[in-house]
Design a binder for these strands. Structure first.
Lengths: 143, 143
DNA sequence: TTTACTGCAAAATTTTTGCATTAAC
DNA sequence: GTTAATGCAAAAATTTTGCAGTAAA
């Protein structure tokens, strides 16, 4: 899994004529070792702990590369923090977000996806992408 | 419709012990006369055209009040522009967003909503809110 | 040795805040 | 008269960019 993503990114780098650098390796390792939804700031701080010289700009630029290569996906939960999640080719999942504790649960629902396609078709749209987020209170916070 | 929103906002202002001001009236009129999804910058520029002294801060603060009062809702399509849409009590709609021309189409689908409830229930969540956006190419841009 | 990458600091964006002044109640 | 709202400018917060120096190919 992690190896597959590392390979995918390596291939992307080669194919684009870019360069493989120590920083990109470090950032990729750190990203892959992180929670599925990590904010740029969280990742930066985690990186700084072991690599005091790494720059914010490098983290931003590298995450954009991850997204472009398909191993990560940018998500916004509307709290002003841009997050990146691990992405797997062709796979998509939606999110349940607890508005109290911030917990994020992923889910997939084929029926919903099919209905989305139908809605799009009825409006002449060709879907490239979608975002479904349910905000609410998780079971623990309900107590 | 517009009258109902004006009344709702007036009631909100009274009930909270806030004040009714010329600026709030102007901003509300301009907002209600605008497209259903307007960005803060667009609204600000439109307002400035007729009211050269109005401040950005006032627009921001007033839009937050609109959202709090329930007559508007904040939405983010992930392009870095916060937008506000007209909201009607108890009503919710989702969006088809064209990634080429920016067109936004609203839709509602009860079956999807029901399925969302089921998903939430199966994870012990209590939904307060949700966001469903389908990004793709609209019929005109497909040509 | 050529080209891309990094780190830094500066700039650009978007949103919020402090505060003296003004306007609503 | 009190209290809240406004407008401005300054401050925050987040992201991007320019550039000289560095490291990969």
């Amino acid at each position: 899994m992690k190896q597959a993503k590392k390979k995918a990114f390596r291939d992307f780098i080669t194919q684009k004529g870019l360069k493989s650098t120590r920083q990109r390796d470090v950032i990729l390792d750190c990203f892959l070792a992180s929670a599925r939804h990590i904010s740029i700031e969280e990742l930066y701080l985690k990186l700084r702990a072991k690599n005091p010289n790494i720059g914010y700009a490098t983290v931003y630029r590298t995450l954009k590369l991850f997204a472009e290569s398909g191993i990560a996906r940018e998500i916004q939960f509307g709290d002003g923090q841009t997050r990146y999640e691990h992405a797997t080719e062709g796979e998509h999942h939606d999110h349940l977000v607890c508005t109290r504790c911030g917990k994020i649960i992923e889910f997939e629902n084929e029926t919903i996806e099919k209905l989305q396609e139908e809605v799009a078709k009825s409006h002449g749209f060709l879907i490239e992408n979608h975002k479904l987020e349910l905000y609410g209170v998780c079971s623990l916070c309900k107590k």
